[in-house]
Design a protein around this nucleic acid. Structure first.
Length: 291
DNA sequence: TGAGTACTAATTCAACCCCT
DNA sequence: AGGGGTTGAATTAGTACTCA
C-alpha cells in the first residue's frame, strides 16, 4: 500500500450517512470504488475483508477500501456512521460510489486487507489498522453527514476540511498509542538520554551501551520502533531546537556550537537538508512582518 | 548478538558569496 | 577588508546486509 504524506492529502468525501440497520442487513460481498469508514454507535456487526474477519461493537471503527472484496453484516439493530471517501482527489465534489459498486460471491472473499500508510511530518510512518476504537470522532462525523446532506454552496471544500480533521484525529491517536508503547520499549533509556542532553553529539555506540546492546543491533531496534535511524533522529531533534532558537534571534554560529554540531558548516548543511531553507532564510520566513 | 564487507551518509575543509 | 553564512568535494564514520 502506498505511503501518503499527511500534509499532502486532499481527501474527498463521496458519501456520508448516519443510519440504523436492522438485524441481518447485509452489504456485500462487494468491491467499492473508493474507501470507507464505518463507525458503530450502538449495536453489533461483523466484517469480512478478504479472508479476515472482524467483530465490530459500539465505539469501534473499521476501514477498508476497493482493493479487497468485503462483506459487512449487521447482527443486531446497529446505529452507525458510514463515510465513503478518497484519500486524494483534485476535485472536492462528492462522487457517489453507488453506481460503481461491484457485487460478488462469498467465494470471492480472498486476500488480506491492505493497510494504507501515512507519513506524518517529523514523527514517521503510520499504518491505519482495519479496526480500532477511536475517541472524539463522532462529532466530526456528525458534521460531515450534515454538510453532505445540506449541500450548501462550497460543501465539497467543507467536507474536505472536516475529513482532514477526522484523519488528523485518527492519526494523532495512533501517534499517542505509539509513544505509550515506546515509553515501555527496549530503546527507552536512549531516547531519555537524548531528551535530557539534546545538545550532546551522541554516538550510536554510546546510545547502544546505555541500552545494553551491540550498536548494530541497537540501530536495527531503533529503526523498528521509531522508523528512523538513530543518527537521523538525533539530528531531527537538534534541528527542532534550532528552529525555536533561530526565531528567538540566536546567532547561527553560537547555536550550532550549543546544539553540538561539529561546525557551523555542517549545521547549515543539515538545516537546509531537513527544512529546505538555510538558517538565515528560516529566521527571515519565521519572523512576523514588521509594522 | 557479533563479525566482515560494501555501500551510504555524516562530517570536515576550503573556497566562495553577500552585506556592511 | 572582514564577519557571517553557504556550498561543493573529499574523507571518515555509520549502516545494511549476510552469515555464523
Amino acid at each position: 500500500m502506498s505511503i501518503r504524506a499527511l500534509d499532502e492529502l486532499m481527501p474527498t468525501v463521496n458519501f456520508a450517512s448516519r443510519a440504523t440497520a436492522l438485524p441481518g442487513t447485509d452489504w456485500g460481498v462487494r468491491l467499492i470504488p473508493d474507501c470507507q469508514l464505518v463507525y458503530v454507535v450502538s449495536g453489533h456487526a461483523e466484517l469480512n475483508v478478504g479472508e479476515c474477519f472482524y467483530e465490530i461493537r459500539a465505539g469501534e471503527c473499521v476501514y477498508y477500501d476497493g482493493e479487497i472484496p468485503h462483506r459487512l453484516l449487521a447482527l443486531g439493530t446497529t446505529d452507525y456512521y458510514s463515510i465513503h471517501f478518497q484519500w486524494t482527489r483534485h476535485s472536492s465534489r462528492p462522487l457517489h460510489p453507488g453506481h460503481s459498486i461491484r457485487y460478488m460471491e462469498p467465494r470471492d472473499l480472498i486476500g488480506k486487507p491492505l493497510h494504507p500508510k501515512v507519513e506524518i511530518p517529523d514523527i514517521g510512518e503510520f499504518t491505519l489498522p482495519t479496526k480500532w476504537s477511536p475517541s472524539g470522532l463522532e462529532p466530526i462525523f456528525t458534521k460531515i453527514v450534515k454538510e453532505y446532506e445540506l449541500e450548501q454552496p462550497g460543501y465539497g471544500v467543507s467536507l474536505r476540511a472536516l475529513m482532514m480533521q477526522a484523519l488528523s484525529l485518527i492519526f494523532r491517536q495512533l501517534v499517542g498509542q505509539r509513544s505509550e508503547q515506546r515509553s515501555r520499549s527496549r530503546i527507552d533509556p536512549a531516547i531519555q538520554a537524548m531528551q535530557e542532553q539534546p545538545g550532546k553529539n551522541w554516538a550510536v555506540s554510546e546510545l547502544a551501551a546505555i541500552c545494553g546492546y551491540h550498536p548494530i543491533h541497537f540501530a536495527k531496534l531503533f529503526k523498528e520502533e521509531i522508523g528512523l535511524l538513530p543518527k537521523h533522529y538525533i539530528i531531527g531533534e537538534r534541528i527542532k531546537l534550532a528552529k525555536r532558537a533561530l526565531l528567538q534571534g540566536e546567532k547561527v554560529e553560537a547555536l550550532s556550537e550549543r546544539l553540538g554540531f561539529t561546525s557551523i558548516h555542517y549545521f547549515s548543511h543539515q538545516f537546509k537538508h531537513l527544512t529546505g531553507l538555510t538558517p538565515t532564510e528560516f529566521r527571515m520566513h519565521g519572523r512576523p512582518p514588521e509594522s
